[in-house]
């Protein structure tokens, strides 16, 4: 399978990465080289094979559904580019 510039722009939109016309054209070539490389997986007979869900056989660990951490609002916003009173500030999303 291969992608065209239009698909690359759509994927960039899904990935939330702004791309210029020039970027999109360059990426189309690069992505097609990679997709061409991975195409060989289609020759593998996978009938009856389950997709991997865990690389080592382990049981999912469970714990009591209780609060074990928290009350760190100042730590959580400490690295944010814009904050006010322990809230993240973002451009207006609701008119």
């Amino acid at each position: 399978m291969s992608v065209d510039v239009k698909t690359v722009k759509r994927v960039a939109r899904l990935a939330r990465i702004a791309v210029s016309e020039e970027d999109a054209e360059r990426m189309t070539g690069e992505l097609n080289a990679i997709l061409g490389f991975v195409d060989q997986l289609n020759e593998v007979d996978v009938s009856g094979v389950e997709p991997m869900t865990s690389v080592t056989p382990m049981e999912m660990k469970k714990r009591q559904d209780v609060v074990t951490d928290g009350n760190k609002a100042a730590d959580i916003v400490a690295n944010a580019p814009a904050t006010e009173e322990n809230f993240f500030l973002v451009p207006k999303v609701v008119e």
Binding site: L41, E50, P51
Partner: peptide, 27 residues
């Protein structure tokens, strides 16, 4: 490049052909 590839192979209509196939091959 890798985010784009990842987004593409997980996008609707391609998930089975790419991601699921790769996870089977991984097994």
């Amino acid at each position: 490049r890798r985010i784009m590839i990842g987004t593409y192979v997980l996008s609707a209509g391609y998930y089975d052909a790419y991601y699921l196939q790769a996870q089977k091959v991984r097994n």
